[in-house]
Design a protein around this nucleic acid. Structure first.
Lengths: 127, 127
DNA sequence: ATCATTAGTATATTTTAGTAAACTATTGTA
DNA sequence: TACAATAGTTTACTAAAATATACTAATGAT
């Protein structure tokens, strides 16, 4: 029932960072095993952001957690970290080219969420 | 910087199940705050599956965890549960219409994962 | 001289999610 | 009579993830 044709073509088994995957999609599921990393991609899909700015949008989140997530995303080659030699420090996070390629995923997420909200949600504070 | 135009049009604030969201995409991120729920959608996007069958594909997973995830997905109106009056019991899980609408998200996930695997992965066991 | 600011790190604690293992109900089969 | 099979539930435990809180370095402003 589950095979190449049905659940995302896998072109064989894929080895990545010591792990073996049968289906390429499993790579995504392992990377985004928590909501935070995909949310960061979502925020950055709009342009670069600084550490504190991200923190503000992701509240409640601690520095430690955000710092860890950003480090993971950098290791996955999905974001880039640029340090500016200023005081107080300025560090900007931007999507890498591979991170940019997640844009279509994000777009579909937004489209689906709007559809879902339209069905089950209640719009308030219309301006 | 983050506003209606930039991060997924939200048509105001959305209230859903007691929670308030500024951006519709946040609904998705809350729903899929763990990898398992989206993986179940991914498996079911291919057709219905029984409890044990899903369990086999999601190993290592305990009955308790899988049971909880399926219950959550049902409450979110994303899957449907059909019980057959047989012994031993047969219960089939299928995507609901709203679950089906996640297909484009899944498709983009698969496409991106293939791209990512092509860049960073190593294909093994070619047949 | 002290404060404010940013981008974190460090330590200890708490919460949460998931695991392991055993159990239930039902009925057909050996 | 006991076992097998499925779809769970229950209880106790563990490990992972996040939190709270305090701290650091560097420098310009008050």
């Amino acid at each position: 029932m589950i095979n190449k044709e049905t659940i995302g073509y896998s072109f064989g088994m894929i080895k990545l960072n010591g792990n073996t995957y049968q289906y390429s999609a499993e790579i995504f599921f392992e990377m985004f095993d928590d909501r935070l990393k995909l949310m960061i991609i979502w925020y950055l899909s709009n342009g670069s952001m600084r550490f504190k700015e991200l923190s503000k949008y992701l509240q409640p989140i601690t520095n430690k957690t955000l710092s860890a997530k950003l480090k993971q995303l950098e290791e996955l080659h999905l974001i880039e970290r640029e340090v500016f030699a200023e005081v107080p420090p300025r560090v900007e996070y931007t999507l890498s080219p591979h991170g940019q390629q997640l844009k279509p995923v994000i777009d579909e997420v937004i489209a689906w969420s709007q559809h879902y909200a339209k069905t089950f949600g209640q719009t308030i504070n219309e301006e």
